[in-house]
């Protein structure tokens, strides 16, 4: 599926990265702890998180994650948007809680993984 499909399914707003909506996505990782994302992600291309600070963008950058989905109505600040733009990253924002966001995307066929 594409980022556009994810955005539609989660009724998400596009904070930045509108030009990359056609990007193909096959797997996702969800956590509020960046430590865990850094330790356990294995090439997933979407990060679903309720954490909202610039280190979310940096973590995504280090792991080649192309799309960040901010859940629970969190809103990216200017610093985050600036960092994301410089790195060609996408930020989506949705009101769904983590459980719901993950469930919806899993149901659509996104893969996760195990440690």
């Amino acid at each position: 599926m594409t980022v556009k499909d994810i955005q539609k399914a989660l009724a998400a707003t596009i904070t930045t990265g509108e030009e990359y909506m056609d990007k193909e996505i096959t797997s996702a990782f969800a956590s509020d702890m960046m430590s865990e994302v850094l330790a356990f992600s294995k090439g997933q291309s979407v990060l679903i998180t309720g954490l909202c600070n610039p280190q979310v963008i940096r973590t995504a950058e280090m792991l080649d994650i192309s799309c960040i989905v901010l859940i629970r109505g969190k809103s990216a600040n200017e610093e985050m948007i600036e960092l994301a733009k410089e790195r060609d990253l996408i930020i989506l924002e949705t009101r769904y809680i983590m459980f719901s966001a993950c469930g919806i995307l899993y149901d659509l066929g996104l893969e996760g993984g195990t440690t």
């Binding site: 702890m33 960046m34 430590s35 330790a39 998180t49 954490l51 280190q55």
Partner: peptide, 17 residues
């Protein structure tokens, strides 16, 4: 620090890995 998304005790082991 945990509230910022770090301090899960994974840093050094992950660096080693």
């Amino acid at each position: 620090v945990r509230a910022l998304g770090f301090g899960a005790g994974m840093g050094l082991p992950n660096m080693q890995g």
